[in-house]
Design a protein around this nucleic acid. Structure first.
Lengths: 335, 335
DNA sequence: CTGAAAGCGCTTACAG
DNA sequence: CTGAAAGCGCTTACAG
């Protein structure tokens, strides 16, 4: 039913080879034949099959993307930036939303292999042994975006999470806060869990602040989690005067919780976020946050991946982008 | 370099036909051969090429999705729900983020055709003549999700936008508001522009409220737009005591604007949103909104599309889902 | 400059 | 139950 190259050839009175040549813009086709072919294509509404083309060219122009949560403003912004770059380079995106479902990730990694995607982008770092093994096995360029898995053999595009977290904490200290609550991530996550936690600890220690166990909590980066952990922080006798959450979503949850307890941000408690997602400007008070260059992260990810695909040597190790503290309304000097 | 079926056959000492048979779980393969083949597959790490398979089966298991804005909470939630359904039915998603770029849409529609996607989901209704024509030409099942284009020959999954808007307005009237500002959408959009505007107008008229031109504005559904239009509403002599924005994003913008003008929501001005996106619960005050069943919308979209693909007759016309007013904190009786 | 033929990696009648 | 062969819709040497 679909028009195929043979139909076009017949219609134009030439060979399929010639049709293929004008399709691919090769030289060595006389203008009159070229015109005939183009007319036939037009009249028949022919669109060449990428499937057939991929098979013979051994090139699919497909990139597989694994997103932990599409509804998160952070990931969807990276994805959007990745899509822009992909489209500009004539690549198409096969998108998988795993929402903490490891089985789905395994399944999609297999699908990606079967679809012969040319590269894979992964945006979460909870890689178990099976997945680690599979990724190595399938032998397709893989890049981690915004996260860094334990396996050192994978390339990542990230910020210096340790330093970013250190700087964020330091800022709160410089505002005069003596007690700073911490709502961290999963300690199994290298970048967003461990590194950000170390940054907080060391900034506190280096500036002579005591680390209070009660002030330190670990969530799952989501709004609800920030809310619940803030609730715990508010329930202790002398809550911290500032709170640093390692995602903007958790910071928002914390702000909402504080507000729901009839306290004010930042007058009663300062709140610092992490990510620099769109949310920071949408909430009131606007959220001071340690910004990752989200757009650039998407761009750099595609950049490295495209280089890996074309076989060029990738820059040694990870790509580390600059973090930046963006001061808004949610933090103020301790009075 | 990639292992192919021939390699497996050789390794297992059988024909490629036999390998193909065990791959596709056909009966009529003796257990010992089956075992040999499976061993070979395992040892060689073989994954069949979907590309080759698609070519011969004339089936790609691909669905193309066109999203107007990935970073919007509304669309990314629908997309996430669509992805769930697709994955459960062994379909993969080719995602395109057009961000108001008509050229990109045209390009992707062509790509979708060339990739031989089995179905296309479109989430915006600004379809120009060229695109309309292209969609008809390529002859692939198309469904519009959450929007309805002018062309009656396309199927949509939507709510009754007119009635939903009518009900939302009526609720504000019942709270005692005499003047109700309206921040609408693009009047070129049937569902979210025209229908929601008519619903507002008629609810006002039916309840003896005068329509004030100054109170009626049209935005682009985004936060910033809601902010700016609210600013205009606040600048008139006697601003309305309630505002109905036809997207949650615009409602949030309106709330922020009101707050930035030292007024309170809902004490000074009530704000009503539309969509029932995740935002409604994340902001403070929480946002009263006319909810579209977003998850269900994604599910229903895939449902109809899968039926179209399998050639089953689709239910006559559009699928209209139930809207639901969800009362939260942002609206209160006029004092 | 043009075309016949082989081949990309599979599946599927067909024959045995 | 098993395999040789044709064919899916293209591209690309090769020959002319």
């Amino acid at each position: 039913m679909q028009v195929k190259i043979k139909d076009v050839a017949k219609h134009a009175g030439v060979s399929v080879t010639t049709v293929s040549r004008v399709l691919n813009g090769e030289r060595y086709v006389k203008d009159d034949l070229k015109a005939k072919v183009n007319d036939a294509i037009q009249e028949l509404g022919y669109a060449p099959s990428q499937i057939a083309r991929s098979l013979v060219r051994n090139k699919t122009n497909l990139i597989g993307v694994i997103v932990p949560d599409l509804t998160s403003s952070f990931y969807s912004t990276i994805l959007s930036s990745i899509e822009d770059m992909a489209s500009a380079n004539d690549y198409n995106l096969l998108v998988c939303n795993i929402s903490e479902n490891i089985d789905k990730e395994l399944k999609y990694l297999n699908v990606f292999q079967e679809m012969r995607v040319e590269g894979i982008i992964i945006m979460h770092e909870k890689i178990n042994e099976e997945i680690r093994h599979l990724i190595h096995k399938i032998n397709i360029p893989v890049i981690f975006s915004s996260v860094k898995p334990l396996d050192q053999s994978f390339a990542s595009v990230i910020v210096d999470d340790y330093q970013a977290s250190y700087d964020a904490t330091k800022y709160l200290i410089e505002l005069g806060h003596e007690t700073i609550g911490f709502i961290g991530g999963d300690l199994q996550d290298i970048t967003s869990g461990q590194n950000r936690y170390s940054g907080y600890r060391n900034a506190m220690a280096d500036n002579g602040k005591t680390l209070v166990d009660e002030h330190i909590r670990f969530g799952d980066y989501k709004v609800r989690s920030g809310y619940l952990h803030m609730k715990e922080l508010l329930s202790i006798e002398r809550p911290p005067t500032a709170v640093f959450a390692v995602s903007d979503d958790m910071a928002l949850g914390a702000m909402n919780c504080i507000r729901d307890h009839q306290l004010r941000v930042p007058e009663d408690i300062s709140v610092m976020g992490f990510d620099g997602s769109l949310l920071t400007e949408l909430v009131r008070p606007t959220l001071t946050s340690m910004e990752q260059p989200i757009q650039e992260m998407g761009r750099a990810t595609m950049d490295v991946l495209l280089k890996q695909i074309s076989g060029k040597k990738i820059p040694t190790g990870d790509v580390v982008l600059e973090h930046r503290l963006v001061i808004r309304e949610s933090c103020q000097p301790r009075i």
